[in-house]
Nucleic acid binder design. Sequence first.
DNA 1: AAAATAGTGTCTGTGAGACAGTATCGC
DNA 2: GCGATACTGTCTCACAGACACTATTTT
Lengths: 215, 215
Amino acid sequence: MTYDTPILTVDVVLLSLIEGTLHVGLVRRQADPYAGVLALPGGYIHTQTDQDTTDTARRVVADKAGLSNVFLEQLATVSGPDRDPRGWSATIVYYALVRGIPEQSPILWHALNDLVPLAFDHAALIRATMERLRSRGGWTTLPAFFLPPRFTFSELRGIYEAVLGQKLNDAAFRRKIDELGVISPIAGEKSKSTARPAQLYQLSSPEISLFNRAL
Amino acid sequence: MTYDTPILTVDVVLLSLIEGTLHVGLVRRQADPYAGVLALPGGYIHTQTDQDTTDTARRVVADKAGLSNVFLEQLATVSGPDRDPRGWSATIVYYALVRGIPEQSPILWHALNDLVPLAFDHAALIRATMERLRSRGGWTTLPAFFLPPRFTFSELRGIYEAVLGQKLNDAAFRRKIDELGVISPIAGEKSKSTARPAQLYQLSSPEISLFNRAL
DNA sequence: AAAATAGTGTCTGTGAGACAGTATCGC
DNA sequence: GCGATACTGTCTCACAGACACTATTTT
């Protein structure tokens, strides 16, 4: 006995920090269903070339957003008979953290606070990503992957505050991050135009690091 | 342009606490590929009946293990061209915590320490589940879902120790769990045959609860 | 009474938050 | 000098671990 095969896609929640607030990267759909509506960039698996769905996600980010070197991680797979009018569907959802501010690309960046209606259940997928981000942000170096390779302590604290949605104590944050040893200072300094320059740091590991305690 | 559709399945890592140690539930495969080899219970999505892949996983657990009322959560989706000899495949992996000791069922329970070779990449899926379990076990009530509805403090501490793989301080554990209010005492007591009876507790919420701090 | 497990009280060290104080830049 | 941001020192409070102590059962 055989069964109908579900529609299987890969969607990516593109996130970037633009002027201090988190933005999500969207595309306007060309074809039905939901033609003309904003949606997450996504696509089908190319079984000839993709070694896994992470490859698919990376290809989607490269082709539809023109971005490479993003931090990419699988969120979850969502499914159901009604989320796509064409039939029973499943989508493997990834989220990507874009380092710094992306320049020209076909991606439309929208602030997370006031989101317009999106195609499919993509609004819910973005909300789920934010929950994951807040959860992981409290005890990993994940928020640092929003930043360019070299950053100051203040910038690091700023992105943690943006991700966690709360102010953090400056001194305690420095002590904590310092003791964890997840970042290393660089000899050069940054010249903030208005005041005392700050020491530049880089991540000690190119991979995400876990803390033994929260925050 | 169309592409080959990947093979899409749902697999379940069944876990249970048997005599103080964690065991995984396996089935012996009837058909090729890997006929006769032990594997995780799994199956295809029934688009006629399943409302999502969680439904699929629940059906697999019911049909292949004869179990209901298990704690079920999605782990991840793994994929690739070589993990199934039939072609490019993806499997949505769930893990299920079986409350108490399962009696007669077609499932073969194996201790996690000495695992025999398994079909596909199922050994890796079990390892990934254990990592998730250890990670989530430190700051949620997840381990409690291995226990029957009514349990003692010692039993609760025991399952946390089994999941986390380390001894926990008795007094500190009681204080912590007590302050969090995630469990509630029941009027009846338990009569351990050998010594002082212990107060029975139940989870305050049927859902998994998160702690504000680890451990 | 002894053994065994359940549960509590108290001391101590660690670490986070608060916050004042010092350092180094542009103007 | 002043304003601004970067950093540091110190106090205090909360909490986890250690551990001795008490409680309640079976034998």
